[in-house]
Simulated assay, not measured.
Amino acid sequence: MKKTSLIQKLEVSKKEFLETSKLIIQPNIISDQKKYRILLKKYMTLEKIVFFYEEYKKQLVSLKEVDFILKNDSDTEMKELATTEKYKILENLSSIEKKSYNLLFSSKEEDETEDDKKAVIVELRSGTGGDEACIFVEDILRMYTMYFKKSGWKYKIIHAQKGGIKGYKEIILDLNGEKGIYGNLKFESGVHRVQRIPKTESQGRVHTSAITVAVLPKVKDIEFNINLSDIKKDTFRSSGAGGQHVNKTESAVRLTHIPSKITVECQEERSQHKNFEKAISVLRSRIYQNEKEKRLRKISIKRKSLVSTGDRSIKIRTYNYPKNRVTDHRIHKSIYNLAGFMDGNIQEMINLLKLFENK
């Protein structure tokens, strides 16, 4: 492809990128999940093209400067340096041309990325705050299940451990739907803090409690296999509701991965075999995530994701009930409609997190 033709194509892409940048932040687009997803994918591709375009222009300017020196400068040493520099510039231009060409004209489908995952494991656990934290786990569970319903996703409870008075100490969900589940929910991993007056508080004081949320892409056998000899299996009687059969037979399953010491329990099904299948699915996802994080730390690579390392010790969001406010600390964004947010209207915040991550 001729340079002039390539530049024209790149200029068209830059114009399209600027138009998409304006469009993608419009409220009506942000609130429409499908439209936003399509535009976001387009935005990300165009952003790469524009980056190459700007680099290409810089290299062309440098090439002109070097050619000027070679033509007009009488200093032999300067000409030698300019010749060496020209070879480097021409190599850079060739590399940019190839990359730009692939982005502009390649018709090959991209491999499935984590953002395309159709299934995830969602884990909610109470943290500091005792009974109030357990109650907040239940509140966040309700928020997510309402969001899932709006998104057309289906979920199943894999494991649940009740709190002392009310709520849950821990609950694990298996979530399935169309592509994009992990791409949306990965931003939820981290510590969620609540500030409110508990119902048990007699003096009207605001308490602060916290829970942790973990969102793990569900891993298939073909993606990551577990050596069964590394797993210790224990069975026990279910402690939850489920009738005489569940409580009187050892249908509940506890799996421990000996090398990593990761433990998973499942007691929601009547059948021990079904509980084992669900537990192994969660265990595979946890081990996969754990191994991936170890590799990232080892080679000192930080993913762009706002919760890239899966570090769930980082406070990501505060739900302040007295001020009717939810604040995401990663993007310093506050929404003053906490009731609506807790009713599952969280897509606006997720869209802003996506936009921030890609910028």
Rank of each mutant, 00 (worst) to 15 (best):
S126P: 14
T200D: 10
F148E: 05
A160H: 04
H207Y: 02
I181M: 01
E201P: 12
K169W: 06
A119S: 14
N225C: 15
G129W: 04
Y155M: 05
R196W: 12
I172D: 06
F148M: 11
Q244A: 11
T235A: 13
F148P: 07
E178H: 08
V122T: 09
F236G: 02
K162S: 04
R237Y: 12
K118F: 06
T128C: 06
K179A: 04
S209W: 00
E170H: 11
Q161G: 02
Y147C: 01
T208C: 09
D230M: 06
V137A: 08
E178L: 10
G167R: 06
Y182G: 02
K169S: 05
G180D: 13
H192F: 14
V206R: 13
L216R: 15
I171W: 04
K199A: 13
M143K: 15
K150I: 05
L228E: 14
R125I: 08
L228T: 12
V120E: 02
Y168V: 02
I226Y: 07
V120A: 01
C134H: 02
H207M: 03
I222V: 10
L124A: 03
K232A: 12
K169Q: 05
E178C: 09
R125S: 10
L124W: 02
I172L: 13
R125D: 09
N176K: 08
I121W: 14
K156D: 01
V219T: 03
V206D: 10
A160I: 03
Y144N: 03
K150C: 04
K150M: 03
K162N: 03
V215K: 01
I211D: 05
K199I: 15
K150L: 09
G204D: 07
V219W: 02
A241M: 10
I140L: 11
H192T: 15
G163Q: 00
Y155I: 05
S209N: 00
R125M: 07
T145K: 03
A241I: 13
A241L: 10
L228P: 08
I172Y: 09
H159A: 00
G130R: 14
Y144D: 06
I231L: 07
S189H: 11
A210C: 00
T212W: 05
A214G: 12
K166F: 02
T208K: 06
I140M: 07
I172F: 08
D139P: 09
S229H: 12
Y147M: 01
Y147S: 01
G130D: 11
K118D: 06
S229Y: 09
V213R: 01
T208G: 07
G127S: 10
K179M: 05
M143C: 15
P217Q: 14
T212Q: 04
I165K: 08
S229G: 12
Q195L: 15
G163R: 00
L173I: 11
S202N: 07
Q161R: 07
E132K: 11
G190E: 09
G152F: 00
D230S: 13
K118A: 09
R205A: 14
